[in-house]
Design a protein around this nucleic acid. Sequence first.
DNA 1: ACTATGTCCTGCGAGC
DNA 2: TGCTCGCAGGACATAG
Length: 307
Amino acid sequence: MPELPEVETIARGLAQRVTGDVIESVWLGQKPEPLKSSARQISCALEHSQILSVHRIGKHIVFDLKDVQPQCVERLQATARAADSKPKPTRPRRGERRHAARSQTQTGRNVTHFIVHLGMTGRLQLCDPRSEVPKHTHAILKLASGRELRFIDPRRFGRLSVVRDLDATGVEPLEIDLARFVVLFRSRETPIKSALLNQKLLRGVGNIYADESLFRAGICPRRRSSTITRDRFAKLRLSLQEVLNEAIAAGGSSVSDYVDSDGEEGFFQLQHRVYGREGEPCLVCNTPIKRIVIAGRSSHYCPKCQH
DNA sequence: ACTATGTCCTGCGAGC
DNA sequence: TGCTCGCAGGACATAG
């Protein structure tokens, strides 16, 4: 299940290998679930566009695309001229959400963003067009370099979309400072585990890294977020950043069927201290690891070390 | 505004 | 061996 470290690994791998390449054509499967934007919107945005960069926002892989289709460029220029002749837009109203920093750096009216969310079982594979197309392939992007980028997702929890502006909610957990972290979590009446999974607060934390960071911080996943002291929030923030960074360094966790864009597995699952270890001894105190359900998710913790 | 719960989807493994 | 059943969970819808 790809969370922040897995998505980061995939995005970095893709950035290295497809930046500058051009999408020549797009094939989309018949199943409607994986498409968040319409098939026509996606095809139109992707075909004849150049991949300027690939990066990660939360659990999303973002392709910044520049249209290189002649008629599209003309149309965009026409739109731009029309926009220029209109009165200048007033500055954003108070409370109106600003666009994320990235969309300001990657400005230009002809930049669009192709967003891939892998869900549980989604994979992006860069491969030879002659290789067998696996079952549950929902999209194939033919690249000018002769390769294909395929989106495969058996469980169909993944989503593909195209947007003009990146207005992501939530804060990147690797960038958040302590003051912001405390403000975000101290008012929540929900179990800390649920709060960590809430993408509107932090973006990118999933079940594995929520459990692992809570173990390292010595906090019980059931604990109400509002009852956690500042000192323990400080510990949690550091634990979370530590575990995410270690996982990125290890190429992510391969549980179920995660592989990166090369088909390589990550290694961080070998370092899980609680996730998937129900009944096994705590690495610190030997107490059997417990598994409970919070917000419909299995949560693993040491009943002695975490409170 | 918050919080909690149900739903989607398929593969896999446990159990008989 | 072959079958059924339940579980895995991110994001969203819905209800309270």
